[in-house]
């Protein structure tokens, strides 16, 4: 992981503070997920197997002379010649801790060789397989994720804008994970293929805790309009990009 300085976000509310924390990777670890469980739920390879490669290790390849290659050290995955693989997240609009933008900021600022894709209801990150696993593990184990309000969903992501279920869990039409005895268990991988064991993703956050840890401004929690500094900066950015975009010829 790259060593970075603290990232700043305007505003003094808990939401603004959480946004800054996500960007700075200054995250509280809330649960432990083993490497084997992570590999199982990502569904790209069998746990314990070697990483399949798309080219030989860089050391064996004999790279051409290039000043940029000398400056930039390759990531572990690139050194080994790993395949590019992805993890895709869905975060509920009902006070999930992260949002697609902040998952992207987190991976793009704190990790190298990543290709995040930010969409309205889902976020995915593509990287060399072992690098991607590293990012996903951080996001899964820390306060960036509530297992009840967010989920790894490779296909059929439907659910982020739906009302929560009666038990407070985000709807998943493919039933990849569910609440059992107070914890969220996942018995399918992110693509909804059944896996051999039930992976325990930990306890979902209570409503109050989710409201405290969220990066979403909501009228029923921390309203955007009450964070004056954020509003001022959003206005400033919009004004400047509009003025820049207006180029009469």
């Amino acid at each position: 992981m790259a060593e970075i300085e603290k990232q700043y976000y305007p505003g003094k509310t808990s939401v603004a503070n959480n946004r800054s924390k996500h960007m700075s990777n200054d995250l509280e670890k809330l649960r432990e997920i083993s490497d084997e469980d992570l590999t199982l739920i990502l569904g790209h390879r069998s746990p314990g197997s070697d990483y399949p490669s798309t080219h030989p290790p860089l050391e064996e390849m004999g790279e051409p002379e290039c000043s940029i290659r000398e400056i930039v050290e390759p990531t572990e995955g690139a050194k080994a010649g790993d395949r590019i693989r992805y993890a895709q997240w869905v975060d509920s609009m009902y006070n999930a801790p992260a949002t697609p933008y902040f998952r992207t900021y987190h991976s793009a600022i704190n990790f190298r060789a990543v290709d995040p894709g930010t969409l309205s209801g889902r976020q995915l990150v593509e990287a060399r397989e072992r690098d991607m696993e590293k990012i996903t593990k951080v996001q899964l184990e820390t306060e960036m994720t509530c297992p009840g309000l967010a989920g790894l969903r490779g296909a059929t992501v439907h659910g982020h804008s739906l009302r929560l279920q009666e038990d407070g869990v985000m709807f998943d039409m493919l039933d990849r994970r569910r609440l059992e005895n107070g914890t969220i268990v996942m018995d399918k991988d992110q693509q909804a293929r059944p896996i051999d064991k039930k992976v325990d993703l930990g306890k979902p956050m209570s409503e109050d805790e989710a409201a405290k840890r969220t990066t979403i401004y909501r009228a029923d929690n921390v309203p955007f309009r009450e964070d004056d500094e954020v509003v001022e900066w959003v206005h400033r950015i919009w004004e400047q990009r509009t003025e820049y975009g207006f180029q009469p010829k």
């Binding site: 490779g154 296909a155 059929t156 493919l174 399918k188 693509q191 909804a192 293929r193």
Partner: peptide
């Protein structure tokens, strides 16, 4: 009843 799209 069954997964409608994707690898599964």
């Amino acid at each position: 009843l069954s997964v409608p799209s994707g690898p599964a």
